[in-house]
Amino acid sequence: MLRAALLVAGKDLRIEWRSKVGIVQVLPFAMAVLVLFAFALDGNRSTLRDVTPGLAWIAMLLSLLLGVQRAFGPETADGALDALRLSGLEPSGVFLGKAAALAAQLLALGMLLGIGVALFYGPDAPGVGGWVVLVTTVVVATTGLAAVGTLYGALSAGIRVRDTLLPILVLPVVMPVLIAATRAVEASLGIGAELTDAWPWVGLLAVFTLAYTALGLLAFGPLLEET
């Protein structure tokens, strides 16, 4: 299963690396969203500093939608999905691989977004404990987002109206991630919360991630069979 996962993840990341869509389209899009928020909030630095975590996570969620479409776009073209079925790879391995590739891209995007946020919104730099919370939150949350995203990507593969369907399916489901990750990052940056307040939120994120990874491992087989 792990070997299959590595193969699929490697393939997906190679496709992304060669197409450069992530760098020339998704990243600029996320940055544009950050700039939009700044204008919407009158470019007021103190307001922006307070709402930094929430805005950053919304930019992440919107980018997730693009990432999911990217992850399954090449699969549905030219019957690639049939080839994947014929390959004899375990469906759970395919799920893990695709989710891992998506998580890796989201993490990279998250880091770059973090730099953008630091430049544009100017939140206070976290201390050592803050960094630990921040990094844990981002890793756990992006993994959870990638798991749900991969499930919905497979589910909607081959649907003609996928582009409009995905947001209404994905956004309500990831709402707990938005709430929990925002609160945890707020705590890590010391915005209206203590550092220790972050851990219940990180726990909730972990439950989310585990639940959807487990569901993905179980449900990917039936989904891949004949959609």
Binding site: Y152, L155, P172, R183, A211, Y212, L215
Partner: peptide, 23 residues
Amino acid sequence: KRAAVAGIIAFLDVPLVHQSVEW
């Protein structure tokens, strides 16, 4: 099949949503 998976995804989310909104 699609609907079944989507239905379970959505239902799994309810306790998580409730917990996060509560906190």
